[in-house]
């Protein structure tokens, strides 16, 4: 019945000489929302980076299949074109590159990959304005260089806008640190919820349970010392909220 979208088996990865991910297993089916929670410094961000192909990590063993294909053999941009989208906690500034220009390149790279005709400037601007309006984005923001001088809220809105426009099948929300801006997160949560369909799946990485009130997950996993130490439904998140991570860390 269920179609697996992402299958991670025995994944081990390291940065320089430090093992970060140690025997990680997880299968995410189409239509499911999984949350990964864990203490700060557990390597939650490493997981999102490895899935998206960020350079600097060495995969020492294990496999990751996405739509049945070997994900680890794909370049970062190929993964993105295949529908993997990472909502970043600290999106980087690119001076001199307006949001519009950047997004037009991104949209058309993805459309080309899907054998869809490229959007011309008029069509694209229309799409951008419409989606921007829903997120309360001022058209002036679209002319500014990407993330340069953006407030935390503006950065989050821009990530949400990209999610809405690029229409990924698998989104990863990386809010690994504790520095969560609740108001800004609401915007992202709404955008994510809007993308919840029976085909799309999501992975929400967070330190706090609070986020999971806005994005209610189907499954919650506790991540510590490089692998999943406990799994359950959304109630597991509440347990963590009340009792902290200590109990899970002892169990292993």
């Amino acid at each position: 019945m269920k179609t697996p979208l992402l299958e991670i088996e025995d994944l081990c990865a390291r940065v320089a000489d430090k093992e970060i991910i140690k025997g990680f297993n997880l299968t995410i089916n189409e239509g499911e929302v999984h949350a990964i929670m864990g203490p700060n410094g557990a390597g939650k961000s490493t997981l999102s980076h490895v899935l998206c192909g960020k350079p600097g990590y060495e995969i020492t063993s294990g496999t990751v299949r996405y739509k049945g294909k070997n994900l680890l053999a794909m370049a970062p941009e190929e993964r993105a074109r295949e529908g993997i989208f990472l909502i970043m906690q600290y999106p980087v500034e690119i001076p001199g590159v307006p949001v519009t220009t950047f997004l037009k390149h991104a949209v058309n790279a993805i459309r080309q990959h899907r054998h869809e005709p490229e959007l011309d400037t008029m069509e694209f601007i229309k799409l951008l304005r419409e989606e921007g309006k829903k997120l309360g984005i001022n058209p002036d923001m679209l002319k500014r260089p990407i993330n340069v001088g953006f407030s935390g809220g503006e950065k989050k809105r821009l990530e949400a806008l990209q999610l809405a426009i690029l229409k990924p099948q698998f989104s990863i929300l990386d809010e690994a640190d504790s520095g969560l801006d609740v108001d800004a997160m609401k915007v992202v949560a709404e955008a994510i919820n809007a993308e919840r369909t029976e085909h799309n799946a999501m992975l929400v990485i967070t330190h706090y349970q609070r986020l999971l009130k806005d994005i209610v997950p189907d499954y919650v996993h506790i991540y510590a010392d490089g692998h999943i130490v406990a799994s359950g439904n959304k109630d597991l998140a509440l347990e963590v909220e009340e009792q902290g991570y200590a109990q899970f860390l002892k169990e292993k």
């Binding site: 941009e77 993105a80 690119i94 590159v97 390149h105």
Partner: peptide
């Protein structure tokens, strides 16, 4: 920066195109 390149690539933009976007941004003034 590697971060800038990765950000572009994560949005589907190929590496060379990403470099050219970043460089054009640098020269914009």
């Amino acid at each position: 920066s590697e971060e800038q390149l990765f950000y572009c690539q994560q949005r589907g933009i190929g590496e060379e195109e990403a470099v050219s976007l970043i460089v054009n941004g640098f020269c914009k003034e």
